[in-house]
Design a protein around this nucleic acid. Structure first.
Lengths: 339, 339
DNA sequence: ATGAAAGCGCTAACAT
DNA sequence: ATGTTAGCGCTTTCAT
């Protein structure tokens, strides 16, 4: 099979110690031996066995990313960015999908405990704070989006209440009066939707508008199809919305599609704002107004948290609650009605 | 820190051998000892150290997936499916992005050689056949899409020539005459675009149409923006297309967006067909006609190849060239012109 | 500057 | 049924 340190040592006529030093540059090696060893290394096509290294080091160089699904544009983009950022820190990322399933989330947390990964970045949907906190005691864990109770685990997120408030306010300022909120998920333990709803209510209140239950639509998942379905219900209901604040771009895109099917003009008859700023939205017809979280910063700060815990585990830093910036990107889907 | 087999053994008053047997169920253990050991296991919260296991087993249980980028809808969907399929085989997937960069592809191939992963599924863009074949000699490798010369490495793909022919034929049959091909990538070593172009030419030839160079648009990458840019060039050129066969849905979506911006009606003035059948296309306005490869089968067969090579390495099976089925999904973007 | 050897945590061959 | 131990490939302490 493939060659080990020992083989290379035998071939170069030195000890494994010296070969190891050449491979890692970990100690001074006489120039001529170094060359001899290097030659042997090349001839044998030596590749270090990572399992052995990890076993020695007590670290794997792997970090986990647990997200509901890779294929969704938002998490896909996030995963891409995280992989790149991890690379810069010489980490390899294991991406796992939870599908918002409690069992899957639990399994990944457990695996993190099993030291397959040195740390875990998780965007929890199904799991409650207790379990997350418990898991974080045995491994470095960073939460994306969801808040842990009393900040017991590191967490990185945008200010959802503020962002939702701004999105709603933007619609109100463009003259819309019957703004719907699309994306409630009362069945999840994830509080994100609840926070966005709070921001939505806050904006309505400031404008002196009483929330209308007929303008709040629930979804069972966050795909375009769910957005389309919820939109259909809004249009068939008594709410008669002239604008929609969807809690994700995917939902917004699905909803917008439904509006088109129903013969509505966007933004003439109805305006849309999404959340996430995924690429699809930028190229939709019309282009989608959205809340853009600073994704680069989300992954960067998450990894920083992990690094801090992994490399100085004794140093019991207080768990961080990091808020990353966002901005409202106005595009054609929410232009003021031509009136 | 965390507990080892030895700790559990001490606590239960048995040998490590017995604990190992309990953990793995690998040998008969007396019921009462089993219970005692299990209790110790639970109390100590024992988790096996995977690095040690891998070192012993000579296998890591990890497989690599190397794709240009996770965030693109097509590769995102594929990655999601592959992770699920791998799970069923108790494999964990490491996803890596190559960005079509030769150096990145080379690095991943090398890592595969380093036994971090037991095998690698790669969608090569930049690397030529020689290097791919060389890498496959030291590790199980499956190619997605790209054909290796003389079938020296396992490969899974759709029949690109046939698919492109069908897509083009569909447009011609709906009465279009000036069908453009969008998505040539002469700078890549990847032959996929070339195959799709061949299918496009074959369809034109069958219809007695001479290919017009002004109707063939190159792109530097495969994002919506590239599709939009190429579309602008087509519209500004002398080709005056009444239909576009884009080599990917993303390109098609970008191109369709540009058509809208130019005030063209789709499909009235111009029809579109994409390739990949990603979710975005299904919810686009209008919904995008596309070639739908059987993605489930792509990942399933790819993993099957890997499993064969990993579990019976001596068994030098001839490299397989697997063609998975596809179908043309006709949607609103290519309805016959109302004429 | 380099060699010898211990030991990371686990499994399995060899005992009893 | 269960204990003892070698060894997977590597890094690193201790010697020289």
């Amino acid at each position: 099979m493939s060659s080990r340190l020992k083989d290379v040592a035998a071939r170069a006529g030195v000890s494994v110690r010296t070969v190891s030093n050449v491979v890692n540059g970990s100690a001074a090696v006489a120039e001529d031996t170094r060359l001899r060893v290097q030659a042997a290394l090349d001839e044998l096509g030596y590749r270090p066995n990572l399992a052995a290294r990890s076993l020695r080091a007590g670290r794997t160089g792997l970090i986990g990313l647990a997200i509901p699904e890779v294929r969704s544009p938002y998490f896909g983009e996030l995963a891409g960015l995280l992989v790149e950022a991890a690379e810069r820190r010489s980490w390899t990322v294991i991406i796992d999908q939870t599908r918002g399933d409690a069992e899957a989330e639990r399994r990944l947390l457990t695996r993190a405990g099993g030291r397959v990964v040195d740390g875990l970045v998780i965007s929890p949907w199904a799991l409650g704070p207790e379990e997350l906190t418990a898991a974080a005691r045995s491994t470095p864990v960073v939460l994306l989006g969801e808040r842990s109770p009393e900040g017991l685990v590191d967490r990185v997120a945008v200010d959802n209440v503020l962002a939702a408030d701004q999105a709603t306010t933007h619609l109100l300022e463009s003259g819309r009066r019957r703004v719907a909120a699309l994306g409630l998920q009362p069945h999840l333990r994830n509080g994100t939707a609840e926070q966005r709803r709070a921001g939505y209510h806050r904006a309505l209140a400031r404008a002196g508008i009483t929330p209308d239950p007929a303008l709040e639509a629930e979804v069972s998942a966050l795909h375009r199809a769910d957005g389309a379905k919820a939109m259909a219900q809004l249009l068939d209901g008594s709410g008669r919305p002239d604008a929609v604040f969807a809690f994700s771009d995917e939902l917004a895109l699905g909803a917008m599609h439904m509006a088109h099917l129903r013969g509505l003009d966007v933004p003439g008859d109805i305006a849309f704002v999404g959340f996430d700023d995924v690429e699809d939205g930028r190229f939709a017809n019309p282009a989608l107004t959205t809340v853009a979280p600073d994704k680069e910063q989300i992954v960067e700060r998450a990894l920083q948290c992990l690094a801090d815990r992994i490399y100085s585990p004794g140093n019991a830093v207080r768990p961080l609650d990091i808020v990353v910036p966002h901005r409202l990107v106005v595009r054609a889907s929410s232009d003021a009605p031509s009136s």
